[in-house]
Design a protein around this nucleic acid. Structure first.
Lengths: 208, 208
DNA sequence: CGGTCTCTTGACGGAGTTCAAAGCTAGTGG
DNA sequence: CCACTAGCTTTGAACTCCGTCAAGAGACCG
């Protein structure tokens, strides 16, 4: 009760909760967190503000960080053989994003990670993540759950991609995330759905 | 040295290593495993032999188990709107497979899981997995790593799907897994690659 | 306002699907 | 161990969804 009041008071005064506490709140949805853990997180995790279109990762450079979106929206994309951008993932509030292959193995990234909107992020570099995993058993459990869910979502997305036409994929995406379709530029959404902006335009018109 | 000799002796005599030890060997590639842990695994994990085409999971039934392939090959698939089978994943030796969404949430599965070949499996049901995760910290770490890798692979696969034509997807898959393309029926592989068996046939002919 | 992104429109083309029928192959029972 | 059959693969012709290209209309930002 008191806690809720405090939160709403903060919200009304437009005083942001410290970014790190947004993460802690999210962690607590999955695992128990000790006070001492919070201190450790606070000590090691960096917070950063990026403006729209700013890049966090460029291709052929190492991708050493794992990003947690406190506020805003990021996307991961690459340039296909024809030179067009292809979005493979979006990340909004409370999502993690990184090029996992590069992050794990320390090699160069094949992707770009870019802010779609002005965003507030937490950055967790590989050594720090490894250290936290070792020191805090709850973190190991937390990331196990996060990756399991991410993988389940990827399985589901793969299924939708195989099952439906471009038109149906858009409609089903819109049904699942009605607000999000207007939050990002059309050409990004189109490449995420696996169709061209032109065709998405035609589909939208058909279902206006 | 002694250990290796013993292994090769077993192999020569065609005495299979106990399935559970195949798992332990795999676990040890990622995390340290105690003798006491092995006993716990042995006590809780079941082993089962399935024949070709046998189903482990049917759609609209709960999917309570996580399967580890000791020997053989499984696949996960579903029936699309037209009634055709669509393969979403294969699992060969040392791979885990399950419908993660159903496994996690306890709901009904949207997929079938079926043996492509006669196979030896370990089965880990949800309660047991949860118990092992709680009791053995190494298991929490192990599955975190496994899921992270699986997710990275899914990201990569998604990228390939967006970037390349059906023809190129087949060629790149064949390059990555030259033996596997002939290990499964063509129609399964075709649906996994996202093309029709007829078109795969044409592609293969073109590159004969 | 001007310039640069972004979105729309329409004509055309091609990669891949659909359908049907004819070859193969492998598994099964006699 | 052969013969039969069901299931798998190949072939080819017609068709369609969606990509490509180019040009114009909005929309956003300095």
């Amino acid at each position: 009760m008191l806690r809720d009041d405090l939160d709403s008071l903060r919200a009304k005064r437009n005083i942001y909760m410290e970014p790190i506490h947004r993460l802690v709140k999210h962690l607590e949805r999955f695992v128990p967190i000790q006070e001492s853990d919070v201190a450790l997180l606070q000590k090691h995790i960096g917070s950063v503000r990026v403006s729209k279109k700013e890049h966090l990762v460029e291709p052929l450079q190492p991708c050493t960080d794992h990003y947690f979106v406190v506020e805003g929206c990021l996307r991961m994309y690459f340039f296909n053989e024809k030179g067009d951008e292809q979005t493979v993932q979006f990340a909004i509030e409370n999502w993690w994003i990184t090029d996992h292959a590069a992050f794990m193995q320390g090699g160069d990234s094949l992707f770009c990670i870019q802010a779609v909107e002005q965003s507030t992020l937490l950055t967790l570099n590989r050594q720090v993540q490894e250290e936290l995993l070792q020191k805090i058993p709850s973190m190991e459990r937390y990331f196990r759950i996060i990756y399991q869910r991410a993988y389940a979502a990827a399985q589901y997305r793969m299924r939708v991609r195989q099952d439906y036409s471009g038109e149906d994929i858009y409609l089903s995406f819109k049904k699942s995330y009605p607000d999000f379709v207007d939050r990002v530029p059309q050409y990004m959404l189109a490449s995420y759905l696996g169709i061209t902006p032109e065709y998405l335009s035609a589909v939208k018109k058909r279902h206006a």
